[in-house]
Design a binder for these strands. Structure first.
Lengths: 192, 192
DNA sequence: AATTCATATGAACAGACGTTCATCTAAAGA
DNA sequence: TCTTTAGATGAACGTCTGTTCATATGAATT
């Protein structure tokens, strides 16, 4: 039992948990698995985290924040609403490929409460981002004057469709580019 | 301990399981819960079903078959590919509202691959149905000449997006009608 | 009434999991 | 060198779950 920096140990646990949750999901991951991956005892985890749930919630929070920052950074550099929306969809789908496990996490088993506040907050913010892009597009006369709320829901729904397809039918994923073009031409384009 | 018809008891268990899985998901449902709902002892369940997994798989199978039959019956009466596709999407989304618990099923050991063989078979058949509609539409000159495989993937992805939204963000569901119009106009329509 | 049959019961079992905590130990400080 | 500190250990605990199986019981038959 070597003495290690508590900072390192904490990070080791976090990294290990990320890997284990990714492979096995929340319920399928045990603290023993995570401990092994982290190279620390199972009791040692509780020196840093209150419990399994807190550990997972922290990861969810981090990942979703990370995504939001990525999006903000990317959109800051894009002026054209068409390019912005296209970029949003593509980034979303790319991110989903890596972190879908935190979106479809066990909400049902915990009575829809597990991480639900974090996710709701996240969805709310993403919704505002999309609405902002659409609104700007309409103002510039690029997009049709549509129901922004509804268009936003469709876009988010489509991205979620990709997420779920990753999980249940990974051999049949639609093309991210074609999908963004569908939304641009079918939902928002003035060329109709 | 009253004597009951074994047939009734079996059905009671199935009905109860359906209700419990719907509310709590697979992992969140215990055999004790199901037994209570069915009005039978927990050991009594094993007189009819081998185990929890078999009970759930049977339900998944039944529900997906039921849906397929509904779809087939409805499409049999529709000649126009536009109406057919529209009907397909609407029926899918309506059914998802009632039975999404069998599409997003997760177990501790198998994660989302629980029941995956049944689901794969189901997806395969639905894919053929959609492709059939698109193919007919193209032949009649109603739909654009597109990549049928990819169009099918997009359609299935969009429906899955609705399914997942039901679970993680039920307050923001897109409108089924608008969505089917999006697909019709943005993906397949010759009016572009 | 006694026996058989069909259905049911629920305590007990085995296993698994998250968590606790008495104990340990190496490193740092006095 | 001795004491303190910081970090770690892992067996044990309590709880829960799926499943088993010895036993029970009411209805039907003899």
């Amino acid at each position: 039992m070597n003495r290690r920096s508590s900072k390192d140990s904490r990070q080791n646990i976090i990294d290990a948990a990320q890997r284990v949750f990714l492979l096995h999901g929340y319920e399928g991951s045990t603290m023993r698995m995570i401990a092994e991956q982290a190279g620390i005892s199972v009791g040692g985890i509780y020196l840093y985290f209150k419990n399994k749930e807190e550990l997972c919630l922290l990861l969810i929070d981090e990942r979703l924040k990370e995504f939001s920052e990525k999006i903000d950074a990317a959109l800051k550099k894009i002026e054209d609403p068409i390019d912005a929306l296209r970029e949003y969809i593509l980034l979303s789908i790319e991110y989903a490929k890596k972190h879908n496990e935190f979106i479809i996490t066990q909400s049902r088993e915990k009575g829809f409460t597990f991480g639900i506040d974090i996710k709701r907050e996240f969805f709310k913010r993403q919704k505002e981002v999309i609405k902002g892009i659409i609104f700007k597009g309409i103002n510039k006369g690029i997009f049709v004057n549509c129901n922004i709320e509804e268009a936003t829901r469709v876009i988010m729904g489509v991205i979620r469709g990709f997420v779920l397809s990753l999980v249940v039918d990974p051999d049949n994923l639609f093309d991210a580019r074609q999908c963004s073009e569908l939304i641009l031409s079918g939902l928002l384009s003035r060329s109709n």
